[in-house]
Simulated scan of single mutants.
Amino acid sequence: MRTELISEPGDPARPDEDFAALALPASGQGGALVVLDGVTPPEDNGGCVHSVPWFCARLGGALTELSGSRRDLTLREVLSHAILRTADSHAFTCDLSHPRTPQATVALARWSATVVEYLVLADSALLCEAPDGTVTAFVDDRLARLPRASLATDALVDATVRNKEGGFFTAAADPAVADRAVAGEVPRAAVRSLAALTDGAARWTEKFRAGDWGDLLRVVRAEGAAALVARVRALETADRTARVHLGRSKTHDDATVVYVEP
């Protein structure tokens, strides 16, 4: 089994708000991967006394443990349990009803000898490569399909589309959001490799159009996960002034890649 994991902050002076983990059972049979992209908080920290990295560590830790230890749960149930466990850990100190209470995007995969399960919520991505090299991208594109006018300001997003019907959903404090995730399974024999990416790493395809998802996975397979992040950083730096591709988005974003050949 080949595994790679890299997570690089967009700004070395700020904590990395991504989370990534691999769970490989002692039995040597199967495994799981977890990738979260923490949502940068507003100035009031979303009514929470904790940081986004604290939240992602709690939620990511619960997802990693449950994915590996509770094979009886579906990945939607794993996510629901993990959100509830995390919410319970700070419900008495924080305002979990705040629309910007700490939250994150999610990409999960779990595999056994017979099946690969997947789950994606919000704008992280999970790529699945078949033995013939065909790459399928499991993505939750609800945010990308929203009219730009509905995303004009943070206040408008929070009031109209964040974790709301007709908008987009993230893992925050409501366990019911797990039912909104894109989830399913494919036969284990149909999977040669998996790659989970936060949107900071997926920029290579989604923002800079340097190649399609298949091209991206081939870069990771041939050159390694760190090489993909380095390519993204070079593209960001080159576009820092003109902002042809970056537009109003931050120049450098936290970038995380987990690659597995199960």
Rank of each mutant, 00 (worst) to 15 (best):
D18P: 02
G28S: 02
T86I: 08
R85W: 11
A159D: 09
I6Y: 10
R188D: 08
P25D: 15
G68S: 13
P99D: 13
F138C: 08
F92Y: 00
L143A: 09
D158H: 04
D123K: 06
D44R: 13
G167F: 01
A230S: 12
K164E: 08
W54M: 06
A178W: 12
S51F: 03
N163V: 04
L108A: 03
D72W: 05
A113N: 15
L194C: 10
V229S: 02
E4N: 11
A230F: 01
V52R: 02
V219M: 00
L146V: 07
V244I: 15
R70S: 08
K207F: 07
W204D: 11
F19W: 07
T40P: 01
N45D: 14
A122N: 14
G47A: 06
F19Q: 02
G200N: 10
R203W: 09
L24Y: 05
T198E: 11
L22C: 03
S51I: 04
F138P: 05
R248N: 13
V257E: 07
H98P: 00
S124W: 10
E8W: 14
F92R: 02
A32V: 01
A172I: 02
R76H: 13
P262I: 06
R233C: 09
V34F: 08
P42H: 03
A255K: 15
K164L: 12
R145A: 12
A21G: 12
A32E: 03
A183C: 06
A109L: 01
L36H: 02
G47D: 04
R76V: 14
V219L: 04
V232H: 07
R2M: 05
R231Q: 04
A201S: 14
H90E: 06
L156C: 01
F138Y: 11
D11Y: 10
G166L: 13
A87P: 10
R240T: 15
D215Y: 09
F92P: 00
R58Y: 00
R233A: 12
